[in-house]
């Protein structure tokens, strides 16, 4: 899609916002919403309030960052260590946003608008936007992305609050089963989206490193297992690559 179709009348900004909002019914957005049911269960298990769970959804948004924060809360991690772990996990936001900006920026898009919109960047919204941007007129891209990403965040924030409260009516087992959505969601989605062997290795190394880290450094087990497992996986990936090149 290069030149806009001359047959089509110029569509208004509101039209593009609505079209973006419709994207919340796309399969990836619906799968993410399922994951947020699990997140609500996880928050309840961690002992935080529904207001805190909804606040966290709105201000952090990226689900990996949030489950690491919940993990830190459960493990009794100190604030600096928790922030450091979250910062390591959110580091990849920078290249994602950098790649998105040339697609998103129109001739008149202001930097404050882009800073505001960047808050809603996480894997789902990023993939959604990168797939569709070239079909959207450049001056309407910010509206389209905002329509999708802001709505997705808002709906899931409200959903976390509602599901969290509804779970008070459910037996404890149902809450546990819902909370268990989160590890299954992340295990499968990380495995599926791993670019290479080292990505899958990182998944297994991080899991394998947690029990010893839990025993040796209580309170810092996530950081120790995450960094340790990540470095081992990176080295393992390199080693395999070197061997393949020799063979």
């Amino acid at each position: 899609m290069t030149a806009p179709d001359p047959e089509l009348p110029e569509r208004s900004t509101a039209h593009w916002i609505l079209l973006g909002m419709k994207g919340i019914l796309s399969p990836p957005a619906l799968i993410l919403t399922t994951a947020f049911f699990g997140f609500a269960g996880l928050c309840r298990e961690a002992g935080i309030s529904w207001q805190e769970a909804a606040f966290m959804t709105a201000v952090v948004w990226a689900l990996p960052a949030k489950i690491i924060l919940i993990g830190a809360i459960t493990a009794g991690t100190s604030l600096p260590a928790a922030a450091f772990a979250v910062a390591l996990s959110s580091l990849r936001m920078t290249p994602m946003v950098v790649a998105l900006m040339p697609e998103l920026r129109g001739p008149k898009t202001r930097t404050p608008t882009l800073l505001f919109l960047s808050h809603f960047v996480a894997i789902t919204a990023w993939v959604f936007a990168m797939e569709r941007m070239e079909d959207i007129p450049r001056d309407k891209r910010a509206a389209f992305f905002g329509g999708f990403a802001v709505t997705l965040t808002a709906i899931n924030t409200v959903l976390v609050a509602i599901v969290f409260n509804l779970m008070g009516q459910l037996p404890a087992l149902a809450t546990g089963a819902l909370a268990f959505l989160t590890p299954v969601y992340f295990f499968t989605s990380l495995y599926g989206s791993a670019r290479d062997f080292s990505g899958r290795l990182a998944l297994f190394c991080g899991m394998a490193a947690l029990p010893p880290a839990h025993l040796l450094s209580p309170g810092y087990e996530l950081l120790v297992a995450g960094i340790g497992g990540g470095i081992v996986a990176y080295a393992g990936g390199r080693l395999l690559k070197a061997r393949r090149e020799v063979a």
């Binding site: 993990g71 990380l190 080292s198 290795l201 991080g206 996986a233």
Partner: peptide
């Protein structure tokens, strides 16, 4: 790999 491993640690937790 560290970002993946951090989430994996929470899964294991």
């Amino acid at each position: 790999t560290i970002a993946t491993s951090l989430v994996a640690a929470v899964i294991a937790q």
